[in-house]
Design a protein around this nucleic acid. Structure first.
Length: 486
RNA sequence: GGGGUAAUAGUGUAGCUUGGCCUAUCAUCUGUGGUUUGGGACCAUAGGACCGCGGUUCAAAUCCGCGUUACCCCGCCA
């Protein structure tokens, strides 16, 4: 059987397994065959090829622009963190200790104090913050860095979704009052939500993390959770309010207007390259990658149909068209000796949002054939209106993709009023929403019983929950998403 | 961290059980020449590989050990 498969030429070039059949294999094939990544010699670390790095660049660019508008500045702190610094906040250390990679030697000599490769930068940054913050006039201090972090615990990784090294932003802000710090949540989560919705065409649910799932060292955590076709939910961007936990551990304190010493109030927040994996899982299909137009520089490809004797006329128009569509990063596939069908498939696997076909027949009729990648829909567009129509269609694709993600998520959310409802929803790979107490012990037992944890407690509650937790006898006042997580 | 499977041209693979006929199969790929082109075209010709280290043996792609990497299940994390 395996032999038969390999005799078919298409097999090596295209995705050979349906997403419905084997999601893991499908995912691997999509990211490799669409030329997003390559594996490297380091286990759990991937090469971001240009086609995936540009996605990250766009996420980064758009997020960064909004951070700056909100008054946050970029800085850069060292990759290495001395052991003594990392150990300063006990709960924080406990959360990360198992997955920290250490540098213990240079050349042949041992280091006096070993250096952690940052799993996150609170400790190294707050050591500086404690020096910089002295007066109420030094606040607020709102810095961000775009960098890489290393978390080495797990043995098996999934490119983008879970890897030993990943790229992210880490925002670390300091305020004089709790009110100011807490007010920042709306701004930051608003930015992240806009990036997800407007650029990545992803729908996510904003909510508060349970006590067990709160970031180590934070007072509370808000996150945007996305529901994947695996029937598992995954955490997207997050925002942590640290209260005064770190400011007390690192002595980030200041004299207020009255000359009294106060500890500062802090937040941290992040969006990571994991979102690229969520994007692929959510939007791609059995033909390969599907990218929302706003996440790629090259939004359309022109495939000229070159019949013998008519090549020049078609190519001439195609080249003009490419110029006219340069603001969309139009690519002209002029390769000879490759059939149009081959080109169609290749651009589909790579996720080019729009394909424009131009052949002798189209020249006669003064039109181009426009094909939308995400739906396969073909549209005839007058050649003279190309710029306007391409822009309109690209915007439409962006909207349709977001609506699809939203509809998928909402249609899989199931409000469960009993344990039976909950078990049924899990079995059907839906996303259960349950009246839940949020108690750490209750969450532990849910993990043991069903292998689930809480995703978050939506800030917008569908209805007011009153009564007992569906799983235990404790009082419950809110609904939570509970699910296996990736 | 536990359990399992695997690694052969750029890619996907055959060969391994039973070591020799492997100067390694098939396809794709890359180069060249020609005919084609509205959904993965074809002919001719040339090119390219046994994951690393060690062992067993007259002889290793094949057997053994160690290492590295990938994939799947479980635990933990963005």
């Amino acid at each position: 059987m395996a032999k038969e498969k390999n005799t078919e030429k298409q097999q090596e070039l295209s995705i050979t397994v349906a997403r419905e059949e084997d999601l893991s294999e499908w995912y691997t094939q999509v990211i490799v065959k669409s030329d997003l990544i390559d594996y490297s010699k380091v286990s759990g670390c991937i090469v971001y090829k240009p086609r995936s790095y540009q996605i990250w660049e766009i996420i980064q660019r758009e997020t960064d622009k909004r951070f700056k508008e909100a008054g946050i500045q970029n800085a850069y702190f060292p990759l290495f963190i001395p052991e003594s610094l990392l150990m300063k906040e006990a709960e924080h250390l406990e959360g990360f200790a198992p997955e920290v990679a250490w540098v213990t030697q240079t050349g042949d000599s041992e280091l006096g104090e070993k250096l952690a490769i940052r799993p996150t930068s609170e400790t190294i940054m707050y050591d500086s913050y404690s020096k910089w913050v002295q007066s109420w006039r030094d606040l607020p201090l709102r810095l961000n860095q775009w960098n890489n972090v290393v978390r080495w615990e797990f043995k098996h990784s999934t490119p983008f979704l879970r890897s030993r090294e990943f790229l992210w932003n880490e925002g670390h802000t300091v305020f004089a009052t709790k009110e100011e710090a807490v007010a920042e949540e709306k701004v930051i989560i608003g930015i992240y939500k806009e990036i997800l919705e407007k650029y990545m065409a992803l729908y996510g649910v904003v909510g508060r993390k349970s006590k067990n799932e709160t970031f180590p060292g934070a007072e509370w955590t808000h996150s945007i959770e996305c529901f994947l076709p695996t029937g598992k939910a995954i955490q997207g961007p997050d925002f942590h309010h640290d209260g005064q936990i770190f400011s007390k551990a690192f002595n980030i304190s200041f004299l207020d207007e009255k000359g009294e010493r106060q500890f500062a109030w802090q937040n941290t927040f992040a969006i990571t390259t994991r979102m690229i994996g969520v994007l692929i899982m959510t939007h791609s299909d059995d033909k390969g990658l599907v990218l929302p137009p706003r996440l790629t520089y090259n939004k359309c490809v022109i495939v000229p149909l070159l019949f013998k004797g008519k090549e020049e006329a078609v190519l001439e128009q195609a080249r003009k068209l490419k110029e006219r569509l340069s603001s969309f990063g139009a690519v002209l596939d002029e390769r000879v000796g490759v059939s149009p069908g081959f080109k169609f498939s290749e651009w589909e696997i790579k996720g080019m949002p729009l394909r424009l076909e131009l052949g002798p027949r189209d020249l006669e009729q003064g039109q181009i054939v426009v094909v939308k990648r995400h739906s396969g829909e073909k549209i005839l567009v007058p050649l003279s209106d190309a710029e306007k129509e391409v822009e309109r269609i690209l915007n439409k694709i962006q909207d349709e993709m977001f609506e699809k993600s939203k509809a998928y998520t909402l249609s899989n959310r199931v409000v469960c009023e009993s344990v039976g409802d909950f078990e049924k929803a899990l079995a059907e790979k839906k996303w259960p929403v349950v009246r839940w107490c949020g108690d750490p012990q209750c969450e532990e037992s849910l993990k043991d019983l069903y292998g689930v944890k809480s995703n978050n407690i939506p800030l917008e509650q569908d209805k007011v929950a009153k009564g007992k937790c569906v799983f235990c006898s404790r009082d419950a006042s809110c609904y939570a998403h509970l699910c296996k997580s990736l």
